[in-house]
Lab assay of single mutants.
Amino acid sequence: GKMTGIVKWFNADKGFGFITPDDGSKDVFVHFSAIQNDGYKSLDEGQKVSFTIESGAKGPAAGNVTSL
């Protein structure tokens, strides 16, 4: 299901970062391709987001990332 969290950091040049889930679980990798907006796909440190957990090739990653 949907989770919420805070963006820990995001490197716009490399197109990835990490989200710290509100439930205290392990930080989740986020790739820019998972960001659900029409414009420039980037996130800001400290931004609140909702997301799902998808299993990627390198382990769990955030999917369906939407800013709240």
Rank of each mutant, 00 (worst) to 15 (best):
G59A: 06
F10C: 02
N37S: 14
E45F: 13
T4C: 06
V30G: 01
T4M: 10
G63S: 14
A62W: 01
K41H: 10
N37T: 15
K26R: 12
M3Q: 12
L68M: 12
A34C: 04
L68Q: 10
K2N: 14
F18K: 04
L68E: 11
F29D: 01
V49T: 02
A12M: 12
T66P: 01
E45K: 15
S25H: 06
I19E: 00
K14F: 13
G56D: 14
S33W: 06
K8L: 07
K14V: 10
D23V: 07
L43W: 04
D23H: 07
W9E: 02
A12P: 13
S55N: 15
A12G: 11
D38T: 11
A34F: 04
V65K: 01
L43I: 07
G5D: 00
T4Y: 10
N11I: 06
G56F: 09
G46C: 05
A61Y: 15
P21G: 03
G5I: 01
F29Y: 10
E54C: 05
V49P: 00
A12F: 10
V7S: 01
I6E: 07
V65P: 01
V49A: 02
S50N: 08
K8Q: 05
A62T: 03
E45P: 15
S42Q: 12
N11Y: 08
H31C: 04
I19A: 01
K2L: 15
F32A: 13
K2R: 06
A57M: 14
V7E: 00
F51V: 01
G5A: 02
F32R: 14
D44Q: 15
D13S: 13
D23F: 07
L68K: 07
Q36M: 14
D27I: 05
I6K: 12
G24V: 03
A57G: 12
I53E: 03
V28A: 03
E54W: 08
K8R: 11
G17T: 01
S50W: 10
K48L: 09
E54K: 05
V30I: 08
S67Y: 12
G15T: 02
K8S: 07
F16P: 00
V30Q: 00
Q47K: 06
D13L: 13
G24D: 06
G39M: 10
T4V: 11
G15L: 03
H31T: 04
G24E: 05
E54D: 12
G24N: 10
N64A: 10
G46N: 06
S55R: 11
N64K: 05
V49D: 00
F18I: 05
D13K: 15
A62C: 04
G56R: 10
S25Y: 07
S42M: 13
F16N: 02
F10G: 01
N11P: 02
K14A: 12
I35Y: 05
S67N: 13
A57Q: 13
G1L: 07
S25R: 09
K48D: 04
A34W: 03
K41A: 09
A12W: 11
T20M: 13
M3I: 14
K48P: 10
Q47W: 08
K48I: 10
F29S: 02
T66V: 15
E54P: 02
V49N: 00
L68T: 11
Q36H: 10
D38I: 08
Q47N: 08
F32V: 13
N37E: 13
V49G: 00
S67V: 15
G59L: 06
G5P: 00
G15R: 05
A61I: 15
A61E: 15
S55L: 14
F16H: 06
K14Y: 10
S50V: 09
G46A: 05
D27C: 04
S25A: 11
N64V: 07
Y40P: 13
D22A: 07
S33I: 05
L68I: 15
G24T: 05
D13Q: 13
S25F: 08
A61D: 04
P60Y: 09
T66W: 06
Y40V: 11
D44G: 14
T52G: 04
E54G: 07
G1N: 10
G1Y: 07
H31S: 05
K58V: 09
K26P: 13
G39C: 08
F32H: 12
T4R: 04
V28W: 03
P60A: 10
T4F: 10
V65C: 03
E45A: 14
K48F: 08
P21R: 04
G5K: 00
T4W: 07
S50P: 00
G63T: 15
I19N: 00
D38G: 11
Q36R: 05
G59N: 07
A61N: 11
G15Y: 02
V30F: 14
G5T: 00
I35V: 11
I35M: 05
T4L: 11
F18P: 00
D23E: 09
A12Q: 13
K58L: 14
A62E: 01
T66E: 13
A57C: 06
T66K: 12
F29Q: 02
A61R: 13
Q47V: 09
S33H: 09
K14Q: 11
N37V: 15
D27A: 07
L68R: 08
V7G: 01
T66D: 08
N11C: 07
F51L: 03
V7W: 02
G63R: 06
A57F: 12
D44T: 15
F10K: 01
F29R: 03
S25L: 07
G5M: 00
I53Q: 05
E54Q: 10
N11G: 04
G1K: 04
V30M: 06
G5V: 00
H31G: 04
G39N: 11
V65A: 02
G59H: 07
D22I: 08
D13H: 12
P60F: 11
M3H: 12
S25P: 05
N37I: 14
G56H: 13
I53V: 12
I53H: 05
K41P: 11
A61P: 02
V30W: 02
T20C: 10
G63V: 13
I53K: 08
F32D: 03
M3Y: 13
D27F: 03
S50D: 05
S55P: 12
H31D: 04
L68V: 13
Q36V: 15
G5Y: 00
G46D: 04
N37F: 12
N64D: 11
T20H: 10
V28M: 05
S67G: 11
F29M: 03
G1S: 09
F18M: 08
G59T: 05
S33N: 09
K41D: 07
F51Y: 11
K48H: 15
K58C: 06
V49H: 01
D44R: 12
V30R: 00
S50L: 10
W9T: 03
S55H: 13
K2P: 15
V7Q: 00
S42Y: 15
V30H: 00
V49M: 02
D22H: 08
A34K: 09
V49Y: 02
A57E: 12
N64C: 06
D13F: 14
V28I: 13
G59C: 04
G39Q: 10
A61V: 13
M3S: 09
S42P: 07
F51H: 01
G5F: 01
V49K: 00
V49L: 03
V65F: 01
G39S: 08
S55C: 07
A12R: 14
P60W: 06
T52R: 04
K2Y: 15
T66Q: 14
S42R: 13
E54A: 08
